[in-house]
Amino acid sequence: MDLVQSVFYICSAMVIVFAFMVIISANPVRGALFLVATFLASSVIWILLEAEFLGLILVLVYVGAVMTLFLFVVMMLNIDVVPLKETLVKYVPVALLVIVAILAMLISVVGPSHFGSMPQPAMHAADYSNTKALGMLLYTQFAYPFEVAGVILLVAIIASITLAFRGRVNRKSQRPSDQVNVNPKDRVRVIKMPSEKKI
């Protein structure tokens, strides 16, 4: 077993363990952190597969941006941990049954022996640009799916604004023109009062 293989197995094991922890950890913040660890370990696997650009994007976008935001949101929402745990325990027997059944099927059907002989992908020289190859594919052969994916992101923006934007009700904004045109007489009232007599 050479170095690449051992790194692959270690990282795969980490992905499985961390992904499992995401599901079973009772504290959502801890769950999000385990998700970060899962992404990191899987990015190593991607880099081993010579998909350097995708591996780095996974770290930059998911770990750096998405999960940080996610952590903020989870910390700000005051989620009650106990009821979550109770429902989880209730479904454990059924879930275990399903997991065992699917796992048995997976092992018997999708084992390496069933995939036949896939040709080894061509090895590339050290100066081979992964990013360039990806860009070429994305803007030629997969231009159509790429555009559709862009539309999906646009829809996501519209949908979330539609659901979250509640209109300008009770917004305490100021109108500069009104403030400039204000007349002292409207704001200050001078009242004449008889002075108090000193006793």
Binding site: I152, V155, A156, I158
Partner: peptide, 22 residues
Amino acid sequence: ISLYLGTELLSLPLYAMVALRR
């Protein structure tokens, strides 16, 4: 790939439309 993306583009607006009566 286009099949999957089409399915998502179909479903995503529907989720929001169902929840429009906020």
